[in-house]
Design a protein around this nucleic acid. Structure first.
Lengths: 159, 159
DNA sequence: GTTACTGCAAACGATTTGCAAGTGG
DNA sequence: CCACTTGCAAATCGTTTGCAGTAAC
């Protein structure tokens, strides 16, 4: 699912354009963060991103990371997924636009799936008095592993 | 959208069954909370729920509310929507199953819409090695009011 | 030079947790 | 009675904010 090559150049360009449009500055921090996100190639959270940047010997404060993520969301370059209370992930919109997320409500595992029929219908959605930028579908349920476990121990409490 | 009458009796029964299945107790607090949720008739958050209960002269601690909401989610009676970082709402699944949510990323307004084609396709989604319990679609974009505002002031920063 | 941006640390708000006291089955 | 639940307050965790110093344009 994360196999399609990420067009770093296109993303950089889109971000630069967004910053210019809004009269915002193209700082080293912002550039490095976007570059790092492209290299991560999949879902990521703030901590992972910060650690990765630190590994590259580039220190950015948490506040600046949040600031940049906010801009990237407004620019429609990334999207934020909150799979559950404690499971938050960000993802490049260009990647997210090609799959849905399947979340097991028992173990929290997240899987990406692609359903062409859903994809096609979603693309055609038109909302009156509204300009759609992004549309996502979350499928919640029980994965086979958890189901098996539950079957063999009915009275077990979750988690 | 919230006009279809809520079947309080059905919900009570489902919750009672869930509690019995899991060997959990049917406490006064849990009963009152479910009853209150049914009366709220739409999206609600923890604070609203607690205030409403307080108005009815029934005090429940925040911890107990969260505990009950967790059980209700596990029982698939309610679902949790996190429309944005700071906008979290709970909703009866029986209500949520009949619409999608349209969220304006600029002003945060949430609208409920129903697209029959999407509804039909969603119902037919089959995921291998997974038992679907609930499926929801979120549509993000700009509402006409915000679009109008942006058009007349390009360089305005969000919020 | 302005003025936005960054880092830091403190503040915040939603949720969770530990523990003693209470109560349902 | 005994374990599950509750209430309370403290703890946690992701995120935001205030402010002084720094750097784009």
């Amino acid at each position: 699912m994360t196999s399609n090559p990420i067009d770093t150049e296109k993303i950089n360009k889109a971000f630069a354009e967004y910053l210019a449009l809004k009269g915002l500055r193209k700082t080293t921090e912002r550039t490095k963060i976007v570059e790092c996100i492209c290299r991560l190639q999949s879902h990521f959270d703030v901590e992972t991103l910060q650690t990765k940047l630190e590994e590259d010997n580039f220190h950015v404060s948490t506040a600046s990371i949040y600031n940049t993520l906010e801009l990237l969301m407004n620019a429609c370059i990334i999207v934020r997924h909150q799979f559950s209370t404690q499971l938050i992930k960000y993802e490049l919109k260009s990647a997210a636009a090609h799959h849905h997320h399947v979340v097991c409500t028992h173990c929290g595992a997240v899987r990406e799936v692609k359903n062409d029929k859903v994809m096609r219908v979603m693309k055609d959605v038109k909302i009156t008095k509204f300009t759609m930028e992004y549309c996502s579908m979350y499928i919640y349920g029980i994965c086979s592993k958890c189901k098996f476990r539950l079957k063999h121990n009915h009275k077990t409490k979750e988690k």
